[in-house]
Design a protein around this nucleic acid. Structure first.
Lengths: 236, 236
DNA sequence: CGGCGACTTGAAACGTGTCAATTAGCGTGG
DNA sequence: CCACGCTAATTGACACGTTTCAAGTCGCCG
């Protein structure tokens, strides 16, 4: 007797399935692009204060943009998935206040700022795509502020996972029972993104596992009970 | 015998001295503006999910944009001073994820989105002013993420105060010995902006006063020892 | 004068951090 | 193929910062 279809329903999310930069910017922008560059995991791709008149876009892999403090603690501002600009602000400023590091091996392209800017101003639909990306970046930053200011460790971690899953899901997360996610993050990445310590992240993840909410093995994370996990993340 | 000039040097910062919206947008934009509206302190000016095709700009007074959670706790995303757009994102989206509330009595104007947008696209220098404002908004949000994720209560509060002072100072904060700031915030505003409780804010402020760093009476805050206060705020 | 909101203060509880010891996992070289 | 050494993760005991709760003061306005 087969398992009931509802319970066996499974959604697998991988970052190589998400929208590619060309879909965001449209083919007309590709003439402003430099060739693809590949960097290994853990490499710094772009450093705070670097001057560079380019707008880099992730094509493959995961990266993180973060700020490093004097005591060597760091705060991750956002994870960059394929299709993400390092920051929309690069279109206007050649300098940034944050550093970008590859988490996995990363392919990226750098678009020339001047050409890109000129093209955006000429093509209103391209421009719309661009500001939508920027607005989403800002909206995510605001959400993170709320998470860090007003939510518990458990909630922060659950929300981080759900947000990543949502960004990887091409059509958004439905009511699927089982969600399996490609998950290359180390616990210290989660810690730096949620404002916690790696030790505490480990404890909370163990708790979530014990509660039957998630499974985390190798570089794959599975949300076992999406509904309960969501309640945990959005309550308050 | 008079006090030495260095020690008596004083800088007074008031929000009615900061740059006016017209200086940001240039006079050419004023044809897109609605007349000034005035709302009393504590009034909600614009609600989350309100649909409104306008880009509101503060002309006088202080306001706060915040997100409210289900348990009635709230997180302030930013304080709005004269010259600030409620959010640059309003230029593109008529809906927002946050609410704006007047702290003092507030005058504001709403610019018509369509006209404003058209004008920005036609006048590159206006456009530059606009994206600079947006980039600054984003940069402040990123700073707040770092503060909430990685700094102590004392640091967060000191940084909040210094940031407000810097925004009120037309030419930036120098090495002035005494900085006196118009400060209409209640302690619960500070709490909601720093992710703390009002009780703890009270304790930290008392500590700062006892340490001779600040003076806070009525609606005026004085930084008594700017250098020490800065060290406190920027260390880490 | 009374009432109310803003603030203060202290005691105790709680969540998260710190430290330290231990285990698991993984790539490298013998 | 195994031993080694490294980094990542786990776990427990304890410390610390912040919250919660409660009582009380102060100032302001009706």
């Amino acid at each position: 007797m087969p398992t009931s279809p509802d319970l066996s329903a499974k959604l697998t999310l991988r970052s190589d399935a998400v929208v590619k930069p060309c879909e965001i910017f449209g083919p007309s922008l590709w003439q402003a692009a430099s060739p693809v560059r590949t960097v290994p995991a853990r490499r710094i791709i772009r450093c705070e204060r670097d001057l560079d008149d380019a707008v880099p876009v992730v094509c493959r892999g995961w990266a993180a943009s973060f700020v490093m403090l004097a005591d060597a603690s760091r705060q991750i501002l956002s994870f960059l998935l394929p299709g993400d600009m390092f920051s929309a602000a690069f279109l206007f400023e050649s300098q940034s206040h944050c550093t970008v590091e590859a988490i996995t091996e990363v392919d990226y392209r750098a678009f020339k700022r001047g050409e890109m800017k000129a093209m955006l101003l000429k093509q209103p639909d391209l421009f719309d795509n661009f500001y939508k990306a920027w607005a989403e970046e800002k909206s995510r930053a605001d959400q993170l502020i709320v998470d860090l200011g007003r939510r518990s460790a458990e909630e922060r971690i659950a929300r981080l996972i759900l947000n990543l899953a949502a960004r990887l899901a091409p059509r958004g997360l439905g009511q699927t029972e089982n969600v399996e996610i490609e998950f290359p993050l180390r616990q210290h990445h989660i810690a730096d993104a949620t404002g916690l310590t790696p030790v505490h992240v480990s404890k909370v993840l163990s708790e979530l596992r014990r509660g039957g909410l998630i499974e985390l093995s190798g570089r794959t994370l599975t949300i076992l009970d999406l509904e309960r996990f969501r309640r945990l993340a959005y309550m308050r």
